[in-house]
Amino acid sequence: MTELKNRYLSLDVFRGLDVALMIIVNSAGNGSTTFSPLLHADWNGFTLTDLVFPTFLFVVGNSMSFSIKKYEAMGHAAFFKKILKRTALIFLLGFLMYWFPFFDDGQLKPLSETRIFGVLQRIALCYMFASIILHFVKTRTAIWLSLAFLVAYHLILIGFGDLTLTGNAVLKLDEWLIGPKHMYHGEGIAFDPEGLLSTLPAIVNVIIGFLAGKFIQKNGQNFETVSKLMMVGFALVFAGLAWDLLLPINKKLWTSSFVLLTCGIDLFAIAILIYFLDMKKMTSWSYFFEVFGKNTLFIYLLSEIFVISLYSINTNGESLYKWIADNVFISWSGGYVGSLLFALWVMITCWVVGYFMDKKKIYVKV
């Protein structure tokens, strides 16, 4: 637990907005009656939900732009110890989250069938690689490395597989490296949208978030900063849409075009928030999202454990999750509205915990 230092309001709100949306899209009361913007694209394409995870990585990079100053004063040994310790802890939390609730019908769930890669695991790996790169190289080199990662990933995808669910290079590497039992099965087959290979382009989301944060700190929160962020954002969106003609925008493969599109949108979003929150001081609405933004990782973990626990409790032959969704929300408001209300209930429940933590000045850092 720690006090918050060296933050700016727009970053906390941006992070909070993203976590709130992440909880909503992960907590649909009934997946078959969920409004389409709250669903991932089936394969190629893009929805609001597809923006959530890359934005999380972007704000991880943004936050790193504050902490990197402390790391510059460390020796290389101390730096690596700090980074690797944090990486291992976040990765372990993600692994334990997929293993939770650990027991099934009184038997310990087998580790041999527990998913290895996932959301927190990708955050951990991207944080580690981005930290090492940004610690050792200058800004210009980081930009060139980012471009090299995106081009290399494009070439690997088309050189070692196709762009289908069953024949892509991401799937092939994970099958060889960890095996199908350790992979995500939500697509109907063993395929992990947070697989090891597709972590390579995801590192770029963190690097661009870092460069944006560093630029904001250096140039201040003013019209020039906002306009430059928006111009670069427009350029990245345009580049992403152009690259889509060669390599489709695809969140599940985390294609290079997807990286540029999402980073461009994130630059637009942070520029708009800087204008309204830090420049115009229009903050009457912001506190709700600040609560999420100040304990991001903790609240995300809380939301996942809450949902998993609801699924794990049996009530009249069905999960408590489904019972609450059907009987408390969907029964009187209909499938689509009821599913949304259920997701909002989960989100508000987590917010209340975050609210009391903020009032007690409790901020959990990993």
Rank of each mutant, 00 (worst) to 15 (best):
1 M>L: 15
1 M>K: 08
13 V>S: 02
20 A>D: 01
33 T>Q: 14
36 S>Q: 13
38 L>R: 05
43 W>L: 02
46 F>N: 00
47 T>M: 10
53 F>D: 01
54 P>E: 01
67 S>T: 14
68 I>N: 13
69 K>L: 12
70 K>F: 11
73 A>R: 14
74 M>L: 15
77 A>W: 11
77 A>M: 10
77 A>R: 12
83 I>E: 06
90 I>T: 12
94 G>W: 04
95 F>H: 02
96 L>F: 13
98 Y>D: 13
99 W>I: 07
99 W>H: 12
100 F>R: 07
102 F>K: 03
102 F>Q: 09
103 F>M: 14
120 L>H: 04
127 Y>E: 08
132 I>Y: 10
132 I>L: 13
139 T>V: 13
147 L>D: 04
165 L>I: 10
170 V>W: 04
174 D>I: 09
175 E>N: 15
178 I>M: 12
180 P>S: 11
181 K>H: 12
184 Y>V: 05
190 A>V: 02
193 P>D: 04
193 P>W: 00
198 S>N: 15
199 T>H: 03
203 I>Q: 02
205 N>T: 09
210 F>Y: 15
210 F>H: 14
210 F>D: 04
216 I>K: 12
219 N>E: 15
227 S>I: 12
234 F>R: 07
237 V>E: 10
243 W>T: 09
243 W>I: 07
248 P>I: 02
250 N>M: 00
253 L>N: 00
256 S>L: 02
259 V>E: 00
261 L>C: 02
261 L>S: 01
267 L>P: 08
269 A>H: 04
270 I>P: 09
270 I>V: 15
271 A>I: 08
279 M>K: 08
280 K>T: 09
294 K>T: 13
295 N>S: 07
303 S>T: 07
311 Y>G: 10
313 I>L: 06
322 K>A: 11
325 A>C: 11
331 S>M: 12
332 W>P: 01
341 L>T: 04
342 F>W: 04
344 L>K: 05
348 I>T: 06
357 M>G: 03
359 K>P: 06
360 K>F: 13
366 V>D: 08
